[in-house]
Design a protein around this nucleic acid. Structure first.
Lengths: 202, 202
DNA sequence: CTTGGAATGGACTATTCGGTCCAGTCTAAG
DNA sequence: CTTAGACTGGACCGAATAGTCCATTCCAAG
């Protein structure tokens, strides 16, 4: 299936994906229509189906991949350098700020509802995202261990998994209630329980 | 707004809500239609609009309330008696079992997508559910404190909030990936960090 | 220049589905 | 028994929207 995309075509395709992502964030996946995407990206329906032959679901999946990549990127460079307490707290601040700013739109979560969670493609995207995220956390914890900042006997993988779960849940609750208290609690408590210094709760 | 419901009417209304909940679980909120609900509950369209005059959203909201009540009920009586380590672990088992069984359908989460998270009614339901859930956890932790099983200086509310976040995230990840490892990790780690005995990881 | 295929425009279709309406039935109170 | 109003059946409607089709334009290679 050799793709035949000229430079112009690639640009248009990118414009569609990014514009669609913006539309989905603005209006919500449930009510966003292809016409919205067309208006936003100044494209015609034939273009949409030219670049995404299987239709809306294929486009949504592309947007999901785009958003998933964004998630980890937004946490850099902190997420990649979790080798001191300072960097852990800096990372925490970035995560809180990012999701507080995002407000009550969860592009990724919503997308899978529409596409169907069991779609192989959709599941693969989220599995891969979680895997990479947790791996970064685990590497960070091991860095602390190497520096003698946390006990060597710590169950790193379980810590990382629990922390990731706390973040996900914190974000879910933020989306549903508008309050970021749980996200903060999960991050603060999770980092605290690694054995680090007490954080000044603010 | 005095409701005028006879016994027969109340029965029908209940039948609709429960049937709709079943339909939503089976087919997913995104694709479930009023016709599905009609077929399942052996009702006519006029009945649906008789009991839910503002239409589908009102019905979905009623189902959301129904499901929300179910969530805490399914954790009883354990959730109400978290006064020993045994009861905490028993509760954990129930939570894991419940959500593993539920598979990849999240009636509540999906519902708010459709209705719109910002709808006052929808937000109120989820806020109240989280509040009650977290309060039960906090009471449980305080019971352990009273029994001298965990340090008195523990920040109970932050612990409870973080644990709740971990559960929510664990469930989210379970829904998205089909794996309950994160839910287990969040629960085991969260209970472990209260200061209790090490759990045999299985 | 020409030419084949990519890229684009936009009208048209098919269908689904929430919601309306009215006619008809049941039921509890007087 | 009467009757008001709750309850039910089901035909009908209109809007929304994913997807199709074909004509036209653009562009790079030969």
């Amino acid at each position: 299936m050799g793709r035949e995309l000229t430079a112009k075509g690639r640009a248009t395709r990118t414009r569609i994906v990014e514009g669609a992502a913006a539309v989905l964030r603005d209006k919500g996946v449930a009510v966003a229509t292809l016409d919205d995407v067309m208006a936003r990206t100044r494209t015609s329906k034939s273009q949409l189906f030219h670049y995404f032959p299987s239709g809306k679901d294929e486009l949504l999946l592309a947007v999901a991949q785009f958003e998933a990549d964004q998630v980890l990127e937004d946490q850099q460079p902190h997420l990649g350098r979790l080798d001191s307490w300072e960097s852990w707290w800096a990372w925490r601040d970035v995560v809180v700020a990012r999701y507080e700013e995002q407000g009550d739109q969860c592009p990724l979560g919503s997308l899978f509802l529409q596409v169907g969670r069991s779609t192989p493609g959709a599941r693969a995207i989220v599995v891969e995202l979680m895997r990479r995220w947790q791996e970064s956390l685990a590497i960070g914890i091991r860095s602390l261990q190497a520096a003698g900042l946390v006990p060597a006997g710590l169950d790193v993988d379980r810590r990382a998994a629990a922390l990731l779960a706390g973040i996900q849940g914190g974000v879910s609750i933020l989306l549903a209630t508008g309050e970021s208290a749980h996200l903060r609690a999960a991050l603060d408590q999770g980092i605290h329980d690694l054995g680090g210094p007490a954080v000044a709760t603010g």
